[in-house]
């Protein structure tokens, strides 16, 4: 139990990952699926940042001429999170654009209804 208290960020991140993953997989509503996708990605970034943060150290930008590496945190996890955010923004944009297209054509956001309507059309 002690581990849970000291690693609260990781525990929360894994829970959020699960919430996002199941929403993206199981929810019928396309907009909520996209929300799920963002929760899932954000959970991973939370985990990355919490792993990369060391208490008492600062961001790796040189201040007051301190060159000692132990004064700063490792910049790589933060860099990865930034890259990851860019990726998930573009993916979200594409998903939203697709959703708009589908809504204009079928006037619903429910993926099951859309599939049914699609099967009614001829090829």
């Amino acid at each position: 139990m002690e581990m849970f208290a000291t690693h609260i960020e990781e525990v929360v991140a894994v829970l959020l990952f699960g919430v996002g993953f199941t929403t993206l997989l199981l929810h019928r509503n396309l907009i909520k699926k996209i929300i799920g996708l963002n929760i899932m990605d954000t959970a991973i970034y939370l985990m990355f940042t919490s792993v990369g943060y060391v208490e008492g150290r600062t961001a790796p930008i040189m201040e007051n001429g301190i060159t000692d590496a132990s004064h700063y945190i490792n910049p790589i996890p933060s860099g990865l999170v930034l890259t990851g955010i860019v990726v998930s923004v573009s993916v979200t944009a594409l998903m939203l654009a697709l959703t708009v297209r589908l809504y204009r054509r079928y006037h619903t956001l429910n993926i099951d209804r859309i599939t049914l309507l699609m099967k009614g059309e001829d090829d």
């Binding site: 396309l30 697709l98 054509r105 993926i111 599939t115 059309e121 090829d123």
Partner: peptide, 9 residues
């Protein structure tokens, strides 16, 4: 319609 739905899936 079909390609849009399959792209979504």
């Amino acid at each position: 319609g079909r390609t849009m739905v399959s792209a979504m899936r």
